[in-house]
């Protein structure tokens, strides 16, 4: 196993375990067939449109409005979750109370509930005669068929991303740091603001990015509560479906290509943030 200077470093370190060829080959074949080739197809399709066509499609006001709503709504939803998520994670990690296990399990509901079911439930809940819709309507706030409905749905699906990203990091923080701050005369609020928040910032941003990425492409939980009025409460993924049903493949492809590029950018940012988070908290998860 010892490598001399003259030997080229091999691509794979030799191992006594058998089966690398067949399992690696099968994995690559399957990955290519199911994921990589179809995904690449969308970019070759988009490329065949040419620059001017591509951008003239995206300049359509209806598409611009839909993209604005999907990205804007996702930003607001992720922002709300970045405010609420730390409180929820803090309560779940730091406090002991009866039923904590159940409350903790409930956080995963947006992951577990099929998106269409969540969408149906939110539409019923916020309908003018719904449990939450009725009191809101009395207060003069209309949720269903408005951008506000879209934001609520995108907030619903994003919460677990922020909470689940924060929880293990919070649990791993050394209490000695906080104790040191306290003995040096810091108030509790100063400790949280000056010690904990800066340490948690990269993790918090990771959660924000994950929630945002999920919300941008979300479809099922949004369409029922949104009502899908063009220029008003129509999200980008729905517009892809509408363009497809009109057999307008170029428009569908152009919207999808923009969204894919955004997802890949977010994925890259998340990876960088996670590296930063590891360095600033020492948490290796």
């Amino acid at each position: 196993m010892s490598l001399t200077e003259h030997q080229r470093r091999p691509w794979r370190t030799p191992s006594v375990l058998p089966g690398f060829g067949v399992t690696f080959g099968f994995s690559m074949f399957w990955l290519g067939l199911i994921v990589l080739i179809p995904l690449a197809g969308i970019f070759t399709w988009a490329a065949s449109l040419g620059f001017s066509d591509f951008f003239s499609i995206l300049a359509d006001p209806r598409i611009l409005e839909a993209l604005k709503l999907s990205f804007g709504g996702a930003l607001i939803g992720a922002f709300v979750n970045t405010l609420v998520g730390p409180v929820v994670a803090w309560v779940l990690v730091r406090y002991e109370f009866y039923g904590r296990g159940i409350v903790d399990a409930v956080i995963d509901l947006p992951f577990a509930l099929p998106t269409a079911v969540a969408g149906l439930a939110l539409a019923a809940l916020y309908a003018p005669n719904g449990w939450l819709g009725a009191p809101l309507a009395d207060a003069g706030i209309k949720v269903i068929f408005t951008p506000l409905g879209v934001i609520i749905a995108l907030t619903f699906i994003g919460l677990p991303f922020v909470v689940r990203t924060l929880q293990p990091v919070l649990a791993d923080l050394e209490p000695e740091i906080e104790e040191a701050a306290a003995t040096l005369g810091a108030t509790r609020w100063q400790t949280i603001r000056k010690i904990l928040l800066p340490a948690l910032l990269p993790t918090l941003l990771t959660g924000f990015a994950l929630a945002f990425a999920r919300a941008v492409g979300e479809y099922g939980s949004v369409i029922f509560i949104a009502g899908n009025l063009p220029y008003k409460s129509e999200i980008a993924p729905l517009l892809i479906i509408i363009k497809l049903e009109e057999f307008n493949y170029p428009a569908a492809t152009a919207i999808a290509a923009i969204m894919l590029v955004m997802s890949f950018l977010i994925l890259l940012i998340v990876n960088l943030l996670q590296g930063w988070a590891r360095r600033s908290t020492g948490y290796a998860g």
Partner: peptide
């Protein structure tokens, strides 16, 4: 590993579209 995780960051609608284009 990042490539394997890729489908999680693709919108479900886009995932459907890639098969229609194929």
């Amino acid at each position: 590993i990042t490539l394997i995780d890729l489908p999680f960051s693709v919108s479900p609608v886009v995932a459907g579209l890639i098969y229609v284009l194929m």
